[in-house]
């Protein structure tokens, strides 16, 4: 199905904002201003956006330690996210969570997560709630090629099948879990979708660096799940452009690998090539979005730097009792 000009521009902008958000953090983190562990999503934008462009705020998603892209794609505010990463009391989680725990339940984003594999069971619960509500809403859990090895993920898949929960298991296979290759850690010949299939759900596979492949696939997946056919799974083959965490020397990569994936597997470049070739958008249209996205990030960083800092009293905010 052909996307409207507005939808194309919007999808591109979403991906570009995520990219610039992450590229900027990569630079800012080196100055030491940002605390904690940060895992960047650069390279995987087409997955988050290709999935979330189909959703509204009543559909739920749950994310991972590499959560910025999912959060932005689901509608978390850029400024409030940046402030959270900066540890401001005006951040999305008042500076309590930081990069790994960004959440905004008001937009259906049930949280990034520091525990690998923790999201899938929670997503099943949200899916069961959606089933009870009967409005055709879904719940989506993002998991990596590492998270797919957790027992929690297996339990959640079977649970979703036996309860026919409208839950979608999105596996982002970026070929690495920390410093370990998918070839070693996933026993099913690097194939994650076949596991989900074995649990009794319908599965799809697509190129996660191609926005249109993701978007088209997700339309089918969502039609299937929203129609009441129970859970589904989809595996996207994708790439992460930075280290596992900021500071990772990435010695596990192959010679020239980073240059190669940036040159041939960049979802933003691919998007630009295909929409300009098909004369759906012009380079000038996309350049304008690029500038706009960069401005948004620049403004968010400036706002985060200037934002209010938390104080010692804030430690005891949001507890039901203090000791």
């Amino acid at each position: 199905m052909q996307l409207s000009r507005e939808a194309l521009l919007r999808a591109y902008r979403q991906m570009k904002v995520i990219r610039e958000f992450e590229e900027r953090l990569h630079v800012e983190i080196m100055t030491g201003e940002i605390a904690g562990f940060t895992h960047l999503y650069s390279g995987q934008e087409a997955v988050a956006v290709g999935v979330c462009e189909h959703l509204d705020t009543d559909d739920k998603i749950i994310s991972t330690h590499r959560g910025h892209g999912h959060c932005l794609a689901k509608g978390c505010a850029v400024d409030a996210m940046m402030k959270e990463i900066w540890g401001s009391r005006d951040g999305l989680c008042k500076g309590k969570g930081g990069s790994m725990h960004i959440a905004d339940v008001d937009v259906g984003m049930l949280g990034a997560n520091g525990i690998v594999g923790a999201g899938a069971p929670i997503a099943v619960g949200a899916a069961l709630a959606a089933k009870l509500d009967g409005k055709g809403k879904v719940s989506i859990t993002f998991s990596g090629d590492g998270a797919c090895n957790q027992g929690t993920t297996f339990e959640a898949m079977n649970f979703a099948v036996v309860t026919q929960a409208p839950c979608i298991f999105v596996f982002e296979n970026n070929h690495y879990s920390e410093h370990t290759g998918v070839e070693y850690a996933v026993g099913t010949q690097q194939d994650i979708a076949s596991r989900a299939e074995a649990f009794g759900m319908k599965v799809w596979r697509a190129d996660g660096t191609d926005f249109f492949a993701v978007h088209d696939t997700m339309r089918e997946v969502l039609d299937h799940v929203r129609a009441g056919n129970g859970p589904a799974a989809v595996e996207f083959d994708t790439e992460r452009f930075f280290g596992h965490f900021e500071g990772d020397p990435q010695r596990y990569r192959g010679e020239g690998e980073l240059d190669r994936i940036r040159a041939t597997r960049d979802c933003l470049k691919k998007f630009r090539e295909s929409v300009t070739a098909a004369k759906l958008l012009t380079d000038a249209d996309l350049d304008a979005v690029d500038t706009d996205a960069l401005d948004a990030i620049e403004a968010a960083v400036a706002a985060a730097r200037a934002a209010a800092r938390p104080t010692a009293e804030d430690v005891l905010a949001d507890v039901y009792i203090a000791y």
Binding site: G87, K96, A312, D314, Y323
Partner: peptide, 14 residues
């Protein structure tokens, strides 16, 4: 205190 561990520098040190 009896809370989860907060993220921000100021909060964690407090």
């Amino acid at each position: 205190p009896h809370t989860p561990i907060p993220f921000a520098r100021e909060l964690e040190s407090a």
